[in-house]
Write a protein that binds this DNA or RNA. Structure first.
Lengths: 200, 200, 200, 200
DNA sequence: TATGAATGAGAATTCATTCAT
DNA sequence: CATGAATGAATTCTCATTCAT
């Protein structure tokens, strides 16, 4: 895509816009965010946005894809530290929630996008998200191959259930101000439920 | 709310608008839905919408509250059929996913709203949703009292994790056309994971 | 006009609407007044208004014509108490300002209408107002015939100037809360200026 | 006001919109004027209006303030040509009516605004108008100090009465097509009435 | 490249008026 | 006569996007 070439030209500006967009989308939501507000927050002119992105939707998509790339890398790395599939699930949960904690705005934006079912989930083939989900799927299949996870467990259900559990927990985290327990507690508990739940 | 009084006057029209709104919101998403399209679909004039609802937001809120009322009633009823707390969780999962299957449009709209973090989750105190979540919380506390669920399990984590797991599963259901396994399989598997995961 | 017949049928309702309209127009101005607010204030249904008036404009016109009829009668009566044309001018000023003082809402509405140049002054032939203005014109011509008012004085200028002076004074009266001098002082001063100004 | 800064950027466009607004408001009245008509008449897009003005009300307010600034300057200048307070009143009257004659549209709009008692006179502190009125007040006080105007004359009454007289005369001028006497005759007669009326 | 003034399509909402009851 | 729910035309204002500079 021609615009991708531009990303290479002034990467600082591209990043500035993307980071401004994260903040504005997190604050206002995609539909209530104004392109001019993103421009102001990025310190560029309104028109400049369109030198780096095709339109407002494209900002969100790019945001999401860039974000997911980092998330996938980080989580893959965390998971690769152990060979025990059950332990890998724990690592996944910890890494996922740690990412949320480190970048709440990004977390919120990704959640909004993932959930804005209509516009984005319907029109846009969300490969990155499926790739992410399937990290869990792979772990489950590996565990089943090693006989550590019950054979009747559906990897496709586990991946969605675990992701959903972590995601709902993180939404609570992002939106709530008062928190009864730490995000670590949540990570430990949720991975514990799933490990016990699916272990052979 | 003063407008609620009107619901009593011509309940058919109130319901017609609400049901049209469910379909339109499910099809287009809240922000891309046009009030005039809801009116057309409901068979009323644009202005009539405003005799029953304060504004477009109010349609969504009303939709959500009415929907949650039904969901809470149905799930409460399903759960009350057994005394075994672990079994209750299974009933919860089945009932939740059955509701999704029976009214996909409503399911999608509720999910959109729940996730539109910004506008709705931030500004609108979402009591109905917390009430729903806490059905699970109560079951867990009951199970702990009976010694059937481990005491170190956090009810607040379980309720969000289980809800998140079911919800993510149902999003997949709603959005995807091709389905590898039935919604019943998903309900059984997810409740099985959690039951094993938290049982004493 | 067919509607005029209706005025005869339930004169209380006709008057109730008119009086409600005076209050609402005075409070909000014609364009910001809502027909439904007039209806509520009159204690009738929205639709009932249209049994007594053709439309919103017609309420204002009727209001004005009824009001001017009273004003003309009252002022004519006051003026007829003396034979001295100069003294008549003083009576006119006193009566005009007294009317304002007695019915501020009506005064304000009449002023609004008189001044809403465009819609009403252009489209609607304002006979009543000219009749009122010409009470002054007649007095001036009578005074000139009796040699008490200078012959070079233009009655058409005097009538507009005196009316304008009184009207501006009354606007001040209606809109201002703190008043340095009484409305009587104003009446005396203004008539004094004009009497000296035009006397032979 | 922040928008005033914009006036400096493209003053031609600001003026074009203002002048279009004068014509449209004069033709249709404020409430019947359409923003899109002003835009068309100014040769700009609808949205452009909102780069220079906050909303429709703001156009009228700006119009009024700009207009009054000119009026005040012109009249002040005219009045300063003589030292005789009574003669100053004549200059005031001539200058006022000459302004009306030169810019009938503006005159009509200012009158509409001044008289739209409700919306504008009540909510908007009309300093410019009071400043204008008080030019007359100052002249009267000066005349009293010099012993040329009777001491019992209330400057506050004279200023409103003279302004009202001129204003009513000019409304007649603006609205009427057939005119029995020239605007100069009116100016001379009215100033003559007041000069005789208040002279010592 | 970068700007930001200008554009104009588009949408929510209002409210005078009607008419079935 | 009276009602008030329903209508739908009409209008302001917003904001993503463009393009001349």
């Amino acid at each position: 895509m021609s615009l991708n070439a531009l990303k290479q030209k002034k990467p600082e500006k591209y990043r500035a816009i993307l980071e401004a967009a994260i903040r504005v989308f997190a604050r206002k939501g995609f539909y209530n965010a104004r392109v001019s507000e993103i421009a102001r927050e990025a310190g560029v002119a309104d028109g400049t946005i369109y030198l780096y992105f095709q339109n407002k939707d494209d900002i969100l998509i790019s945001l999401f894809e860039e974000g997911m790339k980092t998330v996938i890398e980080t989580v893959r790395e965390a998971v690769s530290r152990t060979n025990d599939p059950l332990e890998k699930l724990r690592c996944f949960a910890r890494a996922h929630l740690a990412l949320i904690e480190n970048d709440k705005d990004m977390a919120e934006v990704i959640q909004v996008e993932l959930r804005q079912s209509t516009k984005f989930m319907k029109e846009y083939k969300n490969d990155k998200f499926f790739e992410y989900l399937d990290i869990i799927g792979e772990i489950v299949r590996e565990g089943q191959a090693k006989g550590m996870i019950r054979a009747d467990v559906e990897p496709g259900v586990v991946k969605r259930a675990l992701f959903g559990a972590l995601d709902e927990m993180s939404r609570f985290w992002v939106l709530s101000s008062k928190r009864k327990y730490s995000i670590n507690t949540a990570a430990e508990q949720i991975s514990e439920f799933f490990i016990r739940g699916i272990a052979a």
